[in-house]
Structure formats: structure tokens, C-alpha cells
């Protein structure tokens, strides 16, 4: 009995790592031309765009809100970095693009935290508005740069310098790990979890919830814009709808990575790994030469299984609760904590 719950807890906790290992093993064994250095580079590069944007989505989710505007913000970062490049140079353009993303986040944050409008509404609105601004700015066409130096910068970002890690991937990993450490190891970082997980405790602890919500949205805007900008520099150009498909992948990955729509749960690193897992899956499916419908189907099946599994285990817990309290004693302490904390949130 005891060991069985141990396994369950272990699987629950490291779900995403096990999933990644499983998918990777399957593809390594069966997908043709999957296992080689070059393909690993491709996977890392492809995962970078959404993995970095997922940072922001995850942290907003941890705070108990939604940021649906990430896909427009990715495009915004990409379009602005290319648009500003001739006037500001690369570094200036990156700063400007990230600042613009941060501004979108600030607007989202203020509307959610101060004007008290639901984040779902606010970010659907800004999703549309930012997309419209991009169209007005570009006139509907993509932007590009074609200087020899621009190509050199692009090649530098995209070619591996260490094993199968190109600089763009290394930057992405550093940013993700940096945020992971910040959110888990520092006091202000942990406060984000408190704000989303238990508002009352946060209030009692003197945490200014509004400020944290606003910062979460700013981080989200910045991360999305930065990921779009880096991608654009790597391809020396930007389309007006670069991020349009990212939102659904990011939502799926964040949930598979263990975050909860109710807030207070999730990890930036695990969201990133979930994006990587989906990329490995897609890459492997491409190696089989099947159509894009299988990518959609496979990600749907994985997402559905994860959601169903989580919902079902919660459901079982709920049934135990209130009906047969003596059973609670048999649960392990971690699970018990979950139950009581969910009890608390319900009562609020």
C-alpha cells in the first residue's frame, strides 16, 4: 500500500520528465533518422520560441490569471525588432521590442488588477488590439533585414556552439532557469505562488497582490516579446502572425507541465520541458512523414489524458472528503495537504 502511493506520488511529481523520456525513447527507437546531433539541434531550436513564451503564461497562471495575448505579443516582439533594427541597431531594437511587450503586459496587468476586469476578457481584448496594431504598423506585409551583418548575427544565433545548443537555445535555457530559481528560491518569487494559491494568506502576510499580478503580466509580455524577437533575428525577418499558433501549444504545454488553471501551481521549468516534449513528439511524427493532423491529434490525446487523469484523481479525493474521514489518514501527507488547501480555497 505504502509503496504504491510512493510510486503514484513520484509519477505525479515528475510526470512531465517521465513523459519526455517516454516520448523521446519511443521516437529514438522507432522514428527513422531521429537520433542524431543535427536533429537534436533542430528540436532545441524549435522548442525555444514557445518555451520562452511559456514562462510568462505560466507565471500569470500561477497568479491565478490567464494571458491569452501571448500570441500577439510574440508577433509584436518579432515585428518590432526587425522594424527598429535599421534605426536602433540590434541591441536597441531588442530593448525596444521587449519594452513594447512589457508595456502590453503592464496594460493587461493594470486592467486586471486595478480596473478589476477579468483577465480572460482583458487578454482576449488585447490579443485583438495588438494584432491590429501589428497590421497597421506593417501594412499587412512581413518585414525583413538583408544586410551581411544581419545574416551573420542570424547564423551566429542559429548554429550550435556547444554540442547541440545554438546561442538562441542557450539564451532561452538561461532565461528559463533564471526565472525558475527566482520563483522557487527567492522570497518575492515565492510570493507569486502565494498570491495565486491562497489570497488570504498572501494578504495576511502583507503581500501586495495587485503589484504581483501586474508584474506577472509584465514578465509575460517581456518574455513573449523576447522570444518572438530572438526568433525573428534568427530568421532575419518577421511575419505579422508569427505567434498565432503558439497560444494553444503554450496552454497545452503549461497544463501538461503541471500548472493549474486555478492558480498557485506550476513551474516555469516544467512548462518549458512540456514544450520540449511536444516538440520532440512533433519532430518524431515528422520523421514518420505523416501529416500535420497527427501532430494535432497526438497533442490533443496527451492533453486530454493529462486533464482527465488529474480531474479523476481529484474526483476520487473529493469523494473521500466528507464521506469517510478515516480514509484521509491513509493518504500520504503531501496529498493530505493538497486536500486541505483545496478545502480552504473553496471556502473563500
Amino acid at each position: 500500500m505504502r509503496s504504491q502511493t510512493d510510486v503514484v506520488t513520484f509519477v505525479n511529481r515528475y510526470r512531465i520528465l517521465l513523459l519526455l523520456a517516454l516520448v523521446f525513447l519511443f521516437m529514438a527507437l522507432f522514428a527513422p533518422r531521429f537520433l542524431n546531433m543535427f536533429n537534436m539541434t533542430i528540436i532545441m531550436k524549435s522548442a525555444s520560441l514557445n518555451a520562452m513564451a511559456a514562462i510568462g503564461f505560466t507565471i500569470v497562471l500561477i497568479c491565478g490569471h490567464l494571458d491569452l495575448s501571448v500570441s500577439s505579443t510574440i508577433s509584436l516582439g518579432a515585428v518590432l525588432v526587425i522594424g527598429f533594427r535599421p534605426d536602433l541597431g540590434w541591441s536597441g531594437a531588442i530593448v525596444a521590442a521587449v519594452a513594447a511587450g512589457g508595456f502590453v503586459g503592464l496594460v493587461n496587468g493594470l486592467l486586471v488588477a486595478k480596473a478589476r476586469i477579468h483577465s480572460f476578457i482583458v487578454t482576449i481584448g488585447t490579443l485583438t488590439i495588438v494584432q491590429g496594431i501589428i497590421y497597421v504598423y506593417t501594412g499587412g506585409a512581413a518585414l525583413n533585414v538583408t544586410g551581411a551583418l544581419d545574416f551573420a548575427v542570424a547564423d551566429f544565433l542559429e548554429d550550435p556552439i556547444l554540442l547541440f545548443f545554438p546561442p538562441r537555445v542557450i539564451i532561452t535555457i538561461l532565461v528559463i532557469v533564471g526565472f525558475e530559481v527566482f520563483f522557487l528560491r527567492t522570497k518575492p518569487g515565492r510570493n507569486f505562488y502565494m498570491v495565486g494559491g491562497n489570497r488570504e494568506t498572501a494578504w495576511l502576510a502583507g503581500v501586495k497582490a495587485d503589484a504581483y499580478v501586474i508584474w506577472a503580466f509584465i514578465i509575460s509580455g517581456c518574455a513573449a516579446a523576447l522570444s518572438g524577437a530572438l526568433f525573428a533575428i534568427g530568421i532575419s525577418s518577421a511575419t505579422t502572425d508569427l505567434g498565432v499558433n503558439s497560444l494553444m501549444i503554450i496552454v497545452a504545454a503549461t497544463i501538461i507541465g503541471g500548472a493549474s488553471m486555478n492558480g498557485g501551481k506550476g513551474q516555469v521549468l516544467y512548462s518549458g520541458i512540456a514544450v520540449l516534449m511536444l516538440t520532440v513528439l512533433f519532430n518524431g511524427l515528422n520523421r514518420f512523414g505523416v501529416g500535420s493532423e497527427f501532430r494535432i491529434l497526438a497533442s490533443g490525446v496527451i492533453l486530454a489524458s493529462v486533464v482527465l487523469y488529474e480531474a479523476y484523481s481529484n474526483y476520487k479525493k473529493e469523494r473521500i472528503r466528507g464521506q469517510r474521514p478515516e480514509l484521509l489518514k491513509e493518504l500520504d501527507p503531501q496529498q493530505l495537504k493538497n486536500v486541505t488547501s483545496s478545502l480552504k480555497t473553496r471556502e473563500l
Binding site: L66, M248, V251, A252, I255, S260, M261, N262, G291, S292, E293, F294, R295, I296, L297, A298, S299, G300, V301, L303, A304, V307, L308, E310, A311, Y312, N314, Y315, E318
Partner: peptide, 22 residues
């Protein structure tokens, strides 16, 4: 089962669309 509506219906959308296209 009290699954989150947004995520569950998104998963459903993926699965049905994938099936339909296949």
C-alpha cells in the same frame, strides 16, 4: 470530474480536429 473547462474543451478540439482531418 470537474476538469477545467478551458483545457478540457481545448483538448477535445485538438482530438476532434485531428480525427476529422485524418
Amino acid at each position: 470530474f470537474r476538469a477545467n473547462p478551458i483545457v478540457w474543451t481545448l483538448a477535445m478540439a485538438f482530438v476532434i480536429r485531428g480525427l476529422m482531418r485524418w
